[in-house]
């Protein structure tokens, strides 16, 4: 066991972790942030995607101890400060981009990084980016729409700000 400290959603957290403890188990078990999910054991499904130092990472594929000192962002930190859904979350709701909700946190964390690196992704680019996130409910159709819509909203907001 080792004591590790990480900044999660802007707040510092410390906890104990064995060498073999995965980041996702630390986040869910030790920190009690259960929005990050575990949907497989082979790093395919992407339900556990979080951001580590600003990049999307499958948190089942890294050890918690390897993230000592890291900046972590999880789904619980995505919403606006006033508690409302942010642009991407709202687009998922508006376009019915989720059903059972289990893959959704990973989808949102993954898609939010896409929109950081590509402000106007094409449908093909969105599908390619999200191939590490499995959804069994939606057939992806509405997820793609939601990401496109969020990109358009963000572009509109950026234009208005200029």
């Amino acid at each position: 066991m080792a004591k590790i400290t990480m900044t999660v959603n802007g707040k510092e957290h410390s906890g104990e972790a064995e060498g073999r403890t995965l980041l996702v188990d630390f986040i869910r078990g030790e920190l009690g942030l259960t929005g990050t999910h575990v949907g497989c054991d082979t790093s395919q499904c992407g339900a556990c995607v979080v951001h580590v130092n600003g990049e999307s990472v499958k948190s089942c594929s890294v050890f918690a101890q390897a993230c000592d000192g890291a900046q972590i962002a999880t789904i619980e930190g995505v919403q606006n400060n006033d508690g409302t859904l942010n642009v991407l979350q709202a687009a998922f709701q508006e376009h019915h981009g989720l059903q059972c909700g289990f893959c959704t946190p990973g989808m949102v964390m993954s898609a939010s990084e896409l929109l950081k690196v590509n402000a106007a992704p094409s449908e093909a680019e969105i599908r390619e980016w999200l191939k590490g996130n499995i959804c069994r409910c939606t057939g992806y159709h509405n997820i793609v729409k939601a990401v496109q819509s969020a990109a358009a909203t963000m572009a509109g907001a950026a234009q208005a700000a200029e």
Binding site: G35, T36, I75, V78, L85, F92
Partner: peptide
Amino acid sequence: VVRREDTRFLKGKGRYTDD
């Protein structure tokens, strides 16, 4: 109508059995 349950799922506040 957009789904009311979405809000908790999108915020990571779903209540699944393993939670």
